[in-house]
Design a protein around this nucleic acid. Structure first.
Length: 418
RNA sequence: GUGGGUGUAGCUCAGUUGGUUAGAGCGCCGGAUUGUGGAUCCGGAGGUCGCGGGUUCGAAACCCGUCACUCACCCCA
């Protein structure tokens, strides 16, 4: 048996209404905020991701699905959505458009990791990117959209954490201070963090190991190295969040894994989600457009993991789309008449179905019941001879004879009445 | 890449210190009702016990290997 490859999942018809609900809700909220959908390719040239995400990040170093095209050029399945969106923004010179460039997207992303709860090799994200506005209200707008959307889904146990990463120069000033401190306490750090001192010192502050926490208790704080402009930006973000009533915690240890973030960084976590508890995250990335060859354009955005949302979503709203009329045609002539009737029903807009395997009326009715049909049209050779069929209401069991030529219109009218 | 757990019917799972023909519930098909669904009763179909070796008179069970799934580390959405 050929099986799906590791870390990918089939979404069976029973679950797809949940997903449609999540995606529709996300898109509605984004449109309400003035974001418009952009669809970009799921594969790009490898250097795009290496240059945007950061060449030394785990994603780029060991998690990308990279392969050679026929001409030998290196392509990569996108591990996240921002890089492709920024590339499209630059390529189509969207910076020249005076209107706000606010985009949203949804689709599959690919990372070669060991799968576990809430983490797959092909997973799905919904995200937004807001280009061109350095005003802190753009950060707050994005945060607000994220928070309102997740709250609308009534996901339990959500927490929003934010931090100020400052500008690249601020971090460049801070890093040596931190590194020299960490070297002083190196023996108290876990093995991972000892390696992080060189590779990604900021990440040490976000380590979950308690010993690392206490060892870094007195570490120099990034906040103390921030420029006045960076502080002012963050102060206005937090003030505006408070003004519109969005709850948040400032977490000075919060560090994002991607290199391009600056100033505002944030993460929404959920308490009932296992080890992978980040539902969504994002931040400001003012340098990225320029870094990828565009003119300097400030930007801010977020992405949420749809699998993780689906894991948390209460199962209350399920609205499966089911056929409303079942055609139970049995007998030699009636089978042909019924098949034509089925087609006519569909043409006039009536959701209709029939199981061609069923031969007896009993078997047809059983299928009608299973499919949740509101009405079943009973059509045997006797009915065909008389030119009428029996319409059975599956809830009340009331039956009525209707001329076959009037059936499609009659069914349409009945369904519209409801 | 590292570690733990689990692989038995379509699904959820039993299966005793190794012992006859591998079971249950749900689901499925049929009958009771020769043209009327759900409920009930009766009957039936459905299994390479993940795969490959080994031990044994005898293996679903024990041993070795392997694969898959899963949870966790790492990292991240």
């Amino acid at each position: 048996m050929i099986k799906a490859i590791k870390g990918v999942k089939d979404l069976l018809p029973e679950e797809s209404p949940r997903w449609r609900f999540i995606e529709d809700t996300a898109r509605q909220w984004a449109l309400r905020y003035g974001f418009q959908e952009i669809r970009v390719p799921i594969f790009e040239t490898t250097t795009l991701f290496a240059r945007s995400i950061g060449a030394t990040t785990d994603i780029v170093e060991k998690e990308m699905y990279t392969f050679a095209d026929r001409d030998g050029s290196s392509l990569t399945l996108r591990p996240e959505g921002t890089a492709g969106t920024v590339r499209a923004f630059i390529e189509h010179n969207r910076a020249a458009d005076p209107r706000p460039q606010k985009y949203c997207y949804a689709g599959p992303m690919f990372r070669h990791e060991r799968p576990q709860a809430g983490r797959l090799r092909q997973f799905h994200q919904f995200g937004v990117e807001s280009f061109g506005v350095s005003d802190p209200r753009a950060d707050v707008e994005v945060l607000s959209l994220l928070w309102r959307f997740l709250s609308d889904l009534t996901l339990p146990g959500l927490t929003l954490e934010i931090n100020n990463l400052g500008y690249a120069e601020d971090r460049a000033r801070y890093k040596p201070l931190l590194v020299s401190f960490l070297k002083g306490v190196e023996s108290r750090l876990c093995g991972n963090c000892q390696r992080r001192i060189e590779a990604n010192p900021l990440r040490v502050l976000d380590c979950k190991v308690p010993e690392c926490r206490s060892a870094t208790e007195d570490a120099p704080r990034l906040a103390d190295s921030l420029s006045p402009a960076a502080r002012d930006h963050f102060d206005r973000v937090t003030a505006d969040l408070q003004a519109i009533g969005i709850p948040f915690h400032v977490n000075p240890r919060l560090v994002r894994g991607l290199d391009y973030y600056c100033l505002t960084a944030f993460e929404v976590t959920c308490s009932h989600l296992g080890a992978q508890n980040a539902v969504g995250a994002g931040g400001r990335y003012d340098g990225l457009v320029e870094q990828l060859g565009g003119t300097p354009v400030p930007a801010v955005g977020f992405a949420v993991g749809l699998e993780r949302i689906a894991l948390m979503l209460p199962e209350t709203f399920i609205v499966p789309s089911i056929p409303r009329v079942y055609v139970a045609a049995f007998g030699t002539q009636a089978a042909d008449v019924g098949f034509a009737l089925l087609d006519e029903l569909r043409r006039v807009g009536v959701p209709a179905d029939m199981d061609f395997r069923s031969a007896s009326l009993k078997a047809h009715l059983r299928q009608a019941d299973r499919l949740g049909a509101l009405y079943t049209i009973l059509l045997g050779d006797d009915e065909v001879a008389k030119g009428t069929a029996t319409v059975r209401n599956m809830q009340t069991k009331a039956q009525e004879n209707v001329p076959i030529q009037d059936l499609a219109a009659a069914c349409r009218d009945r369904l519209l009445d409801r």
